[in-house]
Structure formats: structure tokens, C-alpha cells
């Protein structure tokens, strides 16, 4: 019961633009250096200290950016879907702001996952692009992000844009699940590449640890970028309110 009460209190407090602004003001000076440091530690560890992969050699080191980017893109899309649902059901204004704040970095991470996957593909498959199940799913993911961003850009009213993008990402999240299964089935149908970039055998801890650290780092950077964008959007929307006038 205590947990539930705390959660509902957070929901209402963070749902208030003024409280959210203050909260991010306190959080950000700590969060962004921690995010940067975590990412740096994870990547340097992965690049310089983790052992070589006995099959793929050093090219596997791309995993330390590829997998966190792919994970972040997926997580960001699911977060947009959740925010979209919250907005549809309770018409929470903060949810609209969050959707618009998540989309740009989510799209960037999807692009990074694709680019690094393609570069990794060259030494592994001998070609930059293979219609591999994971790369194909990530390409659709990027298209979904671009759709959301195109919709946000096309609608002049910021509230309406946020709500429309929210509805689209709710539909998109359901779609992502089906896309994943359909693409895996499609690949088994057409007998595509047999070597997978990631997965297959279980990772030893000296590779897994830096991977998890850089994953955490990228997620924290994502959070920082979302907070910065949400603050900008909030300030602009509430520019006529008393609390913003007090602030400037």
C-alpha cells in the first residue's frame, strides 16, 4: 500500500509542470556527469580491456555501442507508447511533453544501431547490408520513429501534436511486437544469413560487464536528453504562466 501511495504521489507531482521543472533542475547537474562517466567507463572498458572474441576477433567490440543503441531505441519507443496511453486515458499534459522529448534521441539511437550493425556486418558477412532479422526490425523501428517525428512536425498546435504522436506510438508499440515475429518468420522462410551478429553463445562475464555498463550509460544519456528537451518544451508551453515569469 505504501508503495502504491508513493507512486501515485510521484505521478501527480511529476505531472505538474512546475514541480517537474524544479525536480529536473535539481537532478540534472548530477545526472549528466554520471551519465557521461558511465558511458565512458563502459566504452573504454569494452574497447581496450575486454578480451577478443575467438570467432569474430576485434570487430565484435562494436557490440558495446550497437546493443545499447538498439536497446535504447526499443525502450524509447515503448516509453512513448506508455506515455501515449497515459495521455489517451488521463489526458496528462506531461505525457505529451515526454513523447515529443523522447522521439529525437530514440530515432538517433535507431540510426546508430543500424549504422554500427552495417559496419559490423562488413567483416562478419563480407557485405555492409544483409536483410538479417534484427537489422530489418531495427530499420522498421527507425521508420516508426520517423513517422512519429513527421507527425509532430506537421501539426502546428503543440498539444495536438503530442496527443497525435502518442496515439500513433501506442499503435506502433503493438505493431513492433508483431513486426518482430513476422520478420523472424520471414527470415526462416527465405533462409537468410546464418551468422548472427549478436547472440548465439552466452557471453563471458568479462565481456558482459562492460556491455551492461555502457548500456546503463546510454540509457542515462537518453534520460538527460529527454529531460533537457522536456524542459524546453515545458517552458515554451507555460511561458505565460506565473511560475515561468517568476523564473526568468
Amino acid at each position: 500500500m505504501m508503495v502504491w501511495k508513493t507512486l501515485t504521489r510521484w505521478y501527480h507531482q511529476l505531472g505538474s509542470p512546475r514541480y517537474f521543472y524544479r525536480f529536473s533542475e535539481v537532478l540534472l547537474p548530477w545526472l549528466w556527469p554520471i551519465a557521461l562517466l558511465t558511458t565512458a567507463v563502459g566504452l573504454v572498458w569494452g574497447l581496450a580491456f575486454a578480451p577478443e572474441d575467438y570467432q569474430q576477433g576485434n570487430s565484435y567490440r562494436i557490440i558495446f555501442i550497437h546493443v545499447p543503441a538498439a536497446g535504447g531505441a526499443l525502450l524509447g519507443y515503448v516509453a512513448m507508447g506508455v506515455a501515449g496511453l497515459v495521455n489517451l486515458v488521463w489526458r496528462m499534459k506531461m505525457a505529451e511533453v515526454m513523447i515529443k522529448a523522447i522521439a529525437p534521441f530514440g530515432a538517433v539511437l535507431a540510426a546508430i544501431a543500424l549504422i554500427t550493425g552495417a559496419i559490423w556486418g562488413k567483416p562478419t558477412w563480407g557485405t555492409y547490408w544483409v536483410w538479417d532479422a534484427r537489422l530489418t526490425s531495427m530499420l522498421i523501428m527507425l521508420f516508426l520513429y520517423l513517422g512519429v517525428m513527421a507527425l509532430i512536425n506537421a501539426i502546428p498546435d503543440p498539444r495536438q501534436a503530442g496527443r497525435a504522436a502518442g496515439l500513433l506510438s501506442v499503435v506502433g508499440v503493438i505493431n513492433v511486437v508483431i513486426v518482430k515475429y513476422s520478420v523472424e518468420w520471414w527470415q526462416s522462410l527465405h533462409q537468410g544469413s546464418t551468422i548472427k551478429l549478436t547472440g548465439g553463445s552466452t557471453m563471458p562475464p568479462e565481456m558482459l560487464t562492460p556491455l551492461l555498463i555502457s548500456m546503463l550509460g546510454i540509457y542515462l544519456l537518453f534520460a538527460v536528453s529527454v529531460l533537457w528537451r522536456a524542459r524546453a518544451e515545458l517552458l515554451w508551453r507555460e511561458r505565460k504562466s506565473a511560475w515561468v515569469k517568476e523564473l526568468v
Binding site: 574497447l47 576485434n58 529525437p104 534521441f105 549504422i115 554500427t116 533537457w228
Partner: peptide, 27 residues
């Protein structure tokens, strides 16, 4: 990186460029 230097470093370079640009724009 054995023979894989160009691949690893270009992947990291492009990623760093994209992430840094994004963070800077957001800030």
C-alpha cells in the same frame, strides 16, 4: 584492432558524432 581497426573506429566515430550532436541540440 587486428585487421578490424577501421570498422570499429568508424562505428564509434559516427556514433559519438550523432550522440554528441543530439545532446548539444537538446541542451
Amino acid at each position: 584492432m587486428g585487421t578490424h581497426g577501421p570498422f570499429v573506429w568508424s562505428a564509434y566515430g559516427i556514433s559519438a558524432l550523432l550522440v554528441v550532436t543530439n545532446m548539444w541540440l537538446a541542451y
